[in-house]
Design a protein around this nucleic acid. Sequence first.
DNA 1: GGCATTTGCTAAATGCTTTTAGCAGGAGGA
DNA 2: TCCTCCTGCTAAAAGCATTTAGCAAATGCC
Lengths: 337, 337
Amino acid sequence: MQKKRVTLADVARLAGLSTTAASMILTGRPDTRLSADAHAKVHAAAASLGYRPNVAARALRTDKSRSIAFISDYVATTRFASGLIRGALAAAEEAKHVMLVLETGGEPARETQAVEAALDRQVDGLIFAAMRAREVFVPDLPINVPTIMLNGTSARFPVSVLPDEYRGGRRAVELLRDAGITEGVALLGHNADSEAGLFRSETIARRFAGIRDAMIANGMRFVAELSCWNWEPAHGYDLTRKLLRTKRPKALLCLNDRLAFGAYQALGEAGITVPEDIALVSFDNDELASYLRPGLTTIGLPHEEMGRKAVELMLGGIGAAQLVEMPVIERGSLPRR
Amino acid sequence: MQKKRVTLADVARLAGLSTTAASMILTGRPDTRLSADAHAKVHAAAASLGYRPNVAARALRTDKSRSIAFISDYVATTRFASGLIRGALAAAEEAKHVMLVLETGGEPARETQAVEAALDRQVDGLIFAAMRAREVFVPDLPINVPTIMLNGTSARFPVSVLPDEYRGGRRAVELLRDAGITEGVALLGHNADSEAGLFRSETIARRFAGIRDAMIANGMRFVAELSCWNWEPAHGYDLTRKLLRTKRPKALLCLNDRLAFGAYQALGEAGITVPEDIALVSFDNDELASYLRPGLTTIGLPHEEMGRKAVELMLGGIGAAQLVEMPVIERGSLPRR
DNA sequence: GGCATTTGCTAAATGCTTTTAGCAGGAGGA
DNA sequence: TCCTCCTGCTAAAAGCATTTAGCAAATGCC
């Protein structure tokens, strides 16, 4: 025999007041004229009965559910996703909200279903998260709750939270410069000429812009720019081997940590030591970066902070788009000065 | 001006029937005596108005919300978590449920809050997921919904979904044997003697048992057993260097992929080639394993399938505890026969 | 003292669905 | 013909909280 749920009416009865009074007191209405005595009695009754409001009933009346929906294309295909989720989760918890997580695989049909499922449940807001940052498909449904884009953009919902890739790109070059390396730098993963007209994503484009501007500002030029479309370890390995056949750069600027990982492998095989012979800087702060020896110095993607910021923005009634700073994580792949 | 929500009453009115009829038809009650004509009219009306039931109202009445709670200690601290979530998410979506994700950090207070938050929202079931599989703290609250343990156990809720570590342990040894390696095998990460009385976790204990039994069954003995408490790349590196100072094994059985990763580094530095000089087998199927060269052969943790199974069990009205088979992922770290 | 406020509280409506109980009319059996 | 049983459908209650409108008593003011 499971004891029945205790309702507001039970609390009111025990306190000797009306449910109206109990409701007003427990929801903490500001302008009510109920006595201090009434407040005390209701709180005592609620506590002694272990009263928990029925969220469904409340949602029915108020259209608020203290829950938010996190709709992402891929939740775990890239290990970064979890950073976004974790940050969002933490912020939601602090605000006493719960988070619905929905995955769409980027498919419009599932996207539509996800939004409907979320809206059906009276969520207080929507977060559209993208794993590869670009224009995100948002179903053409009437959405009447605050919505923000996370690691992606949408013409319909202009407020988005993105990493500050431009500054990140600059920082990478400055790291090299500060380590005393102003020439003999090769770029791994991109070639401006061969990729002209091709578009990876908005944020990556900004990363390139930052790199380019910082190179110019510091009077530097790449000694080589090697392009590959996917940034996996195997590609970093191949590119590096190819590079070493003709050149012996002083540093590698890798466009992500997986490329850098492949580069380490090729360098190791060639008997080249990091950072003495060749230094490396990279992007993402993948878990990998800390496993390498020496540790890889990298410009991190601040996913956790981004997830947190998205929820805060949403709950705080939106605001302006946000660029979140990319942290530099210094390990051992650059020479100390 | 946002158009008001379409309610069941609207549908009924348009169909020229009562809300009772509309409700019964739309929820697909089996034993109702409504005419085929009525069915057609209601469905047509619902479709033309784009009716979506109000989940809160329904939950209020039925105590069912078509949502489940996924309560985990850490959602992303280990990259495996996301596999569990993804599998669970996929199964939930197929069953037209949504999933609340809650993180507790393993702290009892947050755990309690998470359960309360979930129960408040009338979830149809609870999944307690643990990242390091062991006895999970479950708050002492009345829980009146199906509950299952994922990658962990609880005395209170006996049905759990776990990897079949015993068989996985056996398979690892058999892999070595099948590759023709029956002697000169070193175990990396555990030493039965020095760790006697210490307890890692239930599942890891089973993994050891499987390994031990298979070794005996095949008349094999470890040439060395090196213990370390944390299984990170740096430890694998250190252990392997230490090992190589005195011995030159034919194979390394690593207790996880991160240890194996460290071993690769040490082996590479020592100019030892995999798998010709030394072969490796490992556990987890971490993303890392595919990055290594040659690729690491490993016994995978079937997290995605486990997550899926947990939801299916929960929605299917529970059943018996499940052991999920650990897949063998063959890459290049064992010699071909 | 007489009137307008203020204070402290409550009855009842509302949100939307599911479900119980039951009604009216027709068919079938005796 | 009368009674029972189906058939096809509906009125109304229930589920639980919030909120509007408003009542009775106490207070303030002149």
